[in-house]
Design a binder for these strands. Structure first.
Length: 754
DNA sequence: GGACAAGCGTACCCAGATCA
DNA sequence: TGATCTGGGTACGCTTGTCC
């Protein structure tokens, strides 16, 4: 039996409420108080149990200082009053929820609750020692009431809408939004006080006896408080990933075949940002690496496990390093996690050093959820490659059911937005003929095909299906897209269209990223994107209307669209690719912006849009073009067991990828491989025949980077390049905002004007 | 089976409002 | 004052139905 823990959400909210109250009397603490209340509401509305301050600290809006307050002030064993809520946020949501439900039942449209009613009813649902101030006091001084202050974050979260109603008490009325309704339904039921402590058991295993493959989790990960109390094991359980915990000498996770205890694919070391900094500081980083190398070489064993199937080491880095920079010491050390720890730059340097090593992969995720999804997809892929797909719906043992908290039903894989992608009317045989003609670049054969077949082929290869037959055939004869872009489109995730401003920005950022820049300013990005020639319009600076169009409007989409935005602002004035992977609403793994940008940039070179001389290396998994095998394997009627359009994430061992040359175990590779090595293992790959060797046939081989240019890493954009551009008409010279020339593109970031 | 048009959805872009 | 946010318009691409 695992140790029992306590859900601390209510207690943390009490602590933050008290802190917000104490800040009420100091005008200069106003913003600090707002932050505290916002954090309080975030914790109050959090879906899952929060067992530790570390877990609380993972929540958006809960920073380091609040985390510290929680660890100092929170006490265990305080039950919430029976039938009451510990926070005003939940009490008010409960009032609005009841009103909304009654309106839905009565088929009334207006579910508004007046401010006065909200206060009085909310008070009755709140723990007895908490009070809303009187309505007139709140109206005269809205910030005075900490209970009422919790309404604003609820509005910001989109749970509640505020309306002006002159005839209602307080002249304001509130309504639960549809989003809010969906979210609070279970939350309110679960969080109402029972007068006793809710105990939660640490999850130690799930269904591993019944599965052909399972994950072994180091028991310190599975149950250790310092590493977030097995939040990951509960997530594994939620995702129906079979696992058990055990003491591992090396690594945190292993993928094991049940029949013979053989480990497959990777030995995984998970590190949070702070843990990474700590381990570098105290020497564990080197020690653990040496141990893992020995394990990989068969010089070390873990209990009865057969380690011969291990092919690589994976570092799973969880969380944004920058978020944990310690500034409170005031000494200027800027250490991650605590004073004296290495800085973000040092950590990045350490990770980049690991990326240079073949057989070592660094995967960055933004959240334990993304980490879980990576583990799940890797295990699925291992099982699939070894001919025994996971069957998570096997009959459960009673003991397992007892161990369970709440297991969500198996998530349905994201269906394609396009109907035709999943509801193919084209038979496998027809598609095979079409794909073969496509593979051989045979225009005559392609022209003989029917339009539906050609359109199906377009979908499989990621091309648009519109246009006449001749247009479609011509489109299909272009260089194939990188497989990663085809996958992302099918996931319904945002990709800027070809030759738009967004496409150009990502190409420019890709170059900067590979040159080691820590980000580009708006001006710099505009200038570089313009000079690439990727943008099909006259100019990104084209002046239209009183304000003048700068093409910059699309930047907001790059920063916001999709489950994992492609870009991020790294400071108030600098933009960079998002290096961190994540998951979408259906818990499918989403590749990071760095990979998508590399794929788009590579495509721009394949199709001769881009004039630069620094194309992404052909050796990257992100630039792997879609192949005949990919298309056929993905057809619902292919021989594959999986009849859906599910695309697994292949964990391609370096020895089997199309690397030009492997210099041997743990030797540094060419610099070309450095940047993208990190997520190569994550990149999706349509199931491939036989032994997964990816071979480009000479007839369809993409132009090598060398053929496009024989550049070195520090090459510059050669705008005198004789690459034929379809957009070869004279381009308007962008208005210069600085003295930067194209040569500036080679400058390292330190030289960037800001 | 192919071509075409209408209707619809989405990405892109514009322009005014708001924020820092 | 410059940057960002946001709502609305436009163009493009996709789906579906119809006609040849």
């Amino acid at each position: 039996m695992g140790k029992e823990y306590e859900d601390m959400r209510d207690e943390y909210c009490r602590v933050l409420w008290d802190q917000a109250e104490s800040l009420r009397f100091h005008a200069h603490d106003h913003s600090k108080r707002l932050v505290t209340v916002r954090a309080l509401v975030q914790i109050a509305c959090h879906d899952d149990e929060i067992l530790t301050e570390t877990q609380a600290g993972e929540i958006r809006g809960v920073g380091e200082s609040i985390e510290k307050t929680l660890s100092k002030e929170a006490r265990h064993g305080i039950p919430t009053e029976c039938g009451r809520y510990a926070t005003a946020a939940l009490a008010m949501l409960s009032v609005l929820y009841e009103k909304k439900i009654s309106c839905i039942k009565k088929k009334e449209k207006d579910a508004l609750v007046s401010m006065g009613e909200l206060l009085s009813k909310g008070q009755s649902k709140l723990e007895s020692f908490r009070k809303f101030l009187a309505l007139d006091l709140i109206l005269s001084s809205p910030g005075a009431c900490t209970a009422w202050a919790q309404m604003q974050p609820l509005e910001s979260k989109g749970f509640v809408k505020r309306r002006q109603r002159i005839n209602m008490e307080g002249k304001l009325a509130f309504e639960l939004t549809d989003d809010g309704l969906e979210h609070v339904k279970h939350l309110l039921k679960e969080r109402i006080g029972t007068g006793r402590i809710q105990k939660i058991e640490a999850v130690r295993s799930w269904h591993w006896q019944n599965s052909p493959f399972y994950v072994i989790v180091d028991h310190r990960e599975g149950g250790g408080e310092s590493v977030k109390l097995g939040s990951l094991t509960r997530r594994l359980q939620k995702e129906q990933v079979p696992f058990r915990t055990a003491v591992l000498n090396t690594g945190d996770y292993l993928f094991v075949r049940a029949s013979d205890n053989k480990c497959f694919d990777a030995i995984v070391e998970r590190k949070t940002a702070v843990d990474l900094a700590d381990s570098i500081r105290d020497g564990r980083w080197k020690r653990q690496y040496t141990n893992m190398v020995e394990a990989l070489n068969g010089q070390q064993s873990n209990h009865n496990l057969d380690m011969s199937g291990l092919e690589r080491i994976v570092y799973l880095i969880e969380g944004d390093l920058k978020r944990y920079v310690h500034t409170q010491c005031g000494c200027g050390c800027m250490g991650v996690g605590k004073c004296g720890n290495p800085t973000v730059e040092k950590l990045r340097q350490a990770l980049n050093e690991k990326r240079k090593i073949s057989k070592v992969h660094v995967v960055e995720t933004n959240h334990p959820k993304a980490t879980t999804c990576w583990i799940k997809s890797t295990l699925e892929e291992i099982a699939r490659k070894n001919g025994t797909p996971l069957t998570p719906t096997k009959k459960r043992k009673t003991s397992d059911i007892q161990d369970e908290v709440k297991v969500q039903p198996a998530t349905v894989m994201t269906p394609s937005k396009k109907k035709s992608a999943t509801c193919s009317k084209v038979s496998y045989a027809q598609l095979k003929v079409a794909a073969t003609a496509w593979n051989e670049r045979d225009r005559t054969q392609l022209t003989k095909l029917t339009l539906p077949v050609l359109k199906e082929l377009c979908i499989s290869t990621g091309e648009n299906v519109s246009g006449t037959k001749a247009q479609i055939v011509s489109r299909l004869l272009e260089e194939p897209e990188p497989a990663l872009l085809v996958l992302r489109r099918r996931q319904g995730e945002y990709i800027p269209r070809d030759r738009t401003a967004g496409h150009a920005f990502l190409c420019a950022l890709d170059i900067a990223h590979r040159q080691g820049s820590i980000g580009l300013t708006k001006d710099d990005l505009m200038t570089r994107a313009e000079e690439l020639g990727v943008f099909a319009g006259e100019s990104l600076y084209y002046e239209v209307g009183p304000l003048g169009y700068t093409g910059w409007a699309v930047a907001k989409d790059l920063l916001s669209k999709g489950a994992v935005p492609l870009c991020k602002r790294i400071s108030s004035s600098r933009y960079a690719l998002n290096p961190i992977a994540g998951v979408d609403a259906n818990r499918k793994f989403i590749s990071p912006g760095t990979d998508i940008a590399a794929a788009l940039h590579y495509k721009a070179h394949l199709r001769k849009y881009c004039k630069c001389k620094s194309p992404p290396p052909q050796t990257l998994e992100a630039t792997r073009q879609i192949t005949l095998e990919d298309i056929l394997k993905d057809h619902p009627s292919s021989s594959n067991d999986d009849k859906t359009s599910t695309i697994f994430f292949k964990s391609t061992p370096p020895t089997k990828t199309k690397r030009k040359q492997s210099k041997g175990l743990f030797d540094s590779d060419d610099d070309d491989d450095i940047i993208y090595e990190n997520t190569a293992s994550l990149l999706p790959s349509l199931p491939v025949d036989d032994d997964d060797v990816i071979i480009y046939e000479p007839t369809k081989a993409p132009p090598s980077p060398q053929s496009i240019s024989n550049d070195s890493d520090d090459d510059i954009l050669d705008l005198t390049s004789d690459v034929d551009s379809p957009n070869s008409k004279a381009r308007r010279r962008p208005p210069r905002t600085s003295n930067r020339s194209c040569i500036d593109l080679t400058l390292d970031d330190s030289s960037d004007s800001d």
